[in-house]
Design a protein around this nucleic acid. Structure first.
Lengths: 144, 144
DNA sequence: CTATATGCAAAGTTTTTGCAGCGAA
DNA sequence: TTCGCTGCAAAAACTTTGCATATAG
């Protein structure tokens, strides 16, 4: 999967589906590369700070649109009931700090379970996975 | 971790925290062993069918209480925005069917990543993990 | 012109809270 | 008689929808 997305590529994906790039969508994309796994609400706050006329609905619509074209991914894990978003980098492993709640991508040279999947489940067709790690991040460990 | 829980044990855990076992909580526990990864709402429907006076709030309170004493676990994965619940069997791997949405425990002889965790993340203290698998279950694969 | 996006507000879902009363220790 | 649990209803948190307008192609 991808690590970085070019604007042209994203615009292309939109066009393929008869959808358009807009300033609102650009801003959401920009923020997604700057922020670490923001929620829809966090994105709304940031966008709204710069463009006060932008509405919540647009944020949610935008996120749904970006999800549909495969450019952003939704994170549901972490015991949180709020959804977090990120650029779809193909990272399937995340670490959530139980103390401060921050989420970080975990880079694994080789997806640790990917190679075991086929033999694990005969009749089940496994198409994807997500690995969520929980614990304490260095900053919080130090603080205690 | 545990595979089966005795009522005495659960009552004991409640008592340790000054909490009580109640008929409502018993019923929720019973349903959790019968149903496969129900949501709070599904549990409410079932409980309400037998005991029409039981309220939603009690279901949620009960689930929170059971979660606190470590007897039930909450599943947030699957892109669903609804939480699912199960007896805390210690199973950390689940399969979600993308077609019918059913969730199944996946028994792994040996947690596939557990052994790799320590070396993966030097300064991060990993205390637990959850592995979510996505794909198509045999029933749905046959149907298509 | 036509179809897609937007803003606004309102409604929808899922979960939590406040409070008075009840019941177990 | 104290403290936790319950039901009820209302609120909160998060997300989606309906509709009229605006705007790109």
């Amino acid at each position: 999967m991808r690590e970085n997305w070019s604007v042209e590529e994203i615009v292309g994906r939109f066009k393929d589906r008869g959808m358009r790039m807009t300033p609102q969508r650009m801003e959401v994309l920009r923020l997604l590369t700057e922020m670490s796994h923001p929620t829809a609400e966090q994105l709304f706050e940031k966008v709204h700070a710069r463009f006060p006329f932008v509405s919540q609905a647009t944020i949610y619509n935008t996120l749904r649109a970006l999800k549909e074209i495969g450019v952003v991914a939704e994170l549901a894990g972490g015991g949180q009931r709020v959804l977090h978003y990120e650029m779809a980098s193909g990272e399937r492993c995340h670490f959530t700090c139980r103390s401060c709640g921050q989420i970080r991508d975990v880079e694994t040279d080789e997806p640790p379970i990917a190679k075991d999947l086929p033999k694990l489940h005969g009749s089940y067709r496994i198409e994807d996975y997500r690995l969520e790690l929980f614990g304490v991040c260095p900053e919080c460990a130090e603080g205690t």
